[in-house]
Design a protein around this nucleic acid. Structure first.
Lengths: 136, 136
DNA sequence: GTTTTTGCAAAATGTTTGCATTGTA
DNA sequence: TACAATGCAAACATTTTGCAAAAAC
């Protein structure tokens, strides 16, 4: 049986463009707001379904930093992230990592490792300058 | 003004022990179930308040892997994790990382980095042997 | 006696689901 | 005409909150 077609509908395109066009790693709510500007009748459920489809097909990345809402990333090659615990700002990072990191983790855990990702937590330039207290 | 006292009440102790006594990185629901065995009248809210207090005071770690519920870790020194995308099993890892990793991330991002943590995603031995399809 | 903590219930949040309708190959 | 996708609303899971009663210092 042939797998279903997955059309790139206007709504899905708008969701994808909202993510790729923003370097803010937007939340679903922010994406919904932006898509709604072009498609006033769009539903929240449609946005979530599009996000699910796009991430399952590897066109976007869904990030979870434990601060409530998922964040979405249009960059899908392997990279890392820093998140500001003051304001939630999220930036991509490309630190040089040991080439055999995943292999060693796999050996140590017995897991078959498919993916790895570093989360850096801290304060962005604005928040550290503004003297936002860092969390305990 | 002196900071509040934070008593180690029986409920809080039970929460802490449920986490430290388990190497499963339990969810709040699992912790609640275990605490309830000793304290049948304990409330979900009490468990959440205890989890919040314990993690704010650095006695436990709250982990978020984007699979719904938070997981809690009694090990609080810096380390990393692998999670099984098949069954949710979560294990601690200690890969050797470049000593200047956080410094370089800080320089590259302009962030003041307080903490970093690697998430390895893959299949645990049981799931990979059982042939659980890995996610796309 | 004052302050902290609990238990309970309600509410908030983010996300998922069911389904009739609409759109499209 | 068949299949996929949308819009809408209800349901869901997890977590947070408000507050009176209970417990601890």
């Amino acid at each position: 049986m042939p797998r279903p077609a997955h059309r790139l509908t206007p709504q899905r395109r708008a969701v994808l463009e909202a993510i790729q066009g923003s370097h803010n790693h937007p939340t679903a709510a922010q994406i919904y707001a932006q898509v709604k500007a072009q498609h006033p009748r769009v539903a929240f459920g449609t946005v979530y379904k599009a996000l699910d489809l796009l991430s399952r097909t590897g066109q976007i990345l869904q990030l979870e930093f434990g601060d409530g809402a998922s964040r979405y990333d249009g960059r899908v090659d392997r990279h890392d992230h820093a998140i500001c615990t003051g304001c939630g700002r999220l930036v991509d990072l490309d630190p040089q990592l040991p080439k055999d990191l995943a292999v060693r983790a796999s050996r140590a855990s017995g897991f078959v490792i498919n993916q790895h990702m570093i989360q850096f937590f801290g304060l962005c330039p604005d928040c550290s300058q503004a003297g936002v207290a860092r969390p305990a």
